[in-house]
Amino acid sequence: MSVFEVNNINVFYGRTQRLFGVDLPPLQSGDVLGLLGANAAGKSTLMRTLAGQQDFRGGTIRFAGQELQRHRARHWLAGVGFMPQTPPQESALRPFELLWSAARALGVTLSDQALTQRIEALLARLGLAERAMAPLYSLSGGKRQLVGLALALIRDPQLMLLDEPTSALDLHWRMVVLDLVQERVQAQQGIAIAALHDLDLAARYCTQLVMLEQGRVVAAGPVAEVLNPANIARVFKVEAQVEIGPMGYPRVQVLNAIRHPG
């Protein structure tokens, strides 16, 4: 049974078309889809569209039998955890306060005690327990990114949309974040879609990959099919070898940049 379907999505910014008939492979619960592509390939645009924040023409986006309609985006987002690329800004707000207020603003129906437990568990898992009551402006960019992830997960969503969730994180926290995403997807039969820059991490955590180039899908499917030297050369303009690493995941060895791409 496929749970998340995205077919033939076209997006325009004014008159410029940004996404051209994008299809995603049908996703089953438990799937983690990695969106790969160079800068400005359309990853963030696609993410925002899937989150119901960007108008699209033609096509359908359907999750668990429900179809996304732009004017009911708020309703759509109630079941979706969307983590935008921008982390929470450097205000004097504290992570615990932020999560608490967000839950209450969104009408999360949890008792104070249950909400406290959920927030504490999230913050502890993301290594923010010590900084739960520290103003956001005192946190590093990476820590704020983790707060942003906690915020996206506050409603315990079935569908997670993560726009470069690990871009400001060091190796340790990248692994922790993607472990958490994988765990949640498996535990609650959910689905995650993450725009990623790190090919090795994508190969390790994703079940499906989609490569975008200038608003078009150039490759889509299981990791082993998509992650090959030809696709990598086309999308990232680098010469690379793909081998199976000691842990059994594909590993990308970048050899050199292609001097005169295209």
């Binding site: 989150a51 119901g52 924040q53 985006a73 708020r74 759509w76 987002l77 109630a78 969307f82 983590m83 935008p84 690329q85 921008t86 929470p88 800004q89 205000s91 004097a92 707000l93 306060e97 932020l98 207020s101 967000a102 209450r104 603003a105 969104l106 956001l136 942003g148 915020l151 996206a152």
Partner: peptide
């Protein structure tokens, strides 16, 4: 509106991503 106002202090992108209009 106090909860929404507090949430806005995290920034526009965050508030929007949670579905606030």
């Amino acid at each position: 509106h106090v909860w929404v106002l507090t949430l806005l202090r995290a920034g526009e992108a965050q508030a929007q991503s949670l579905g606030l209009d």
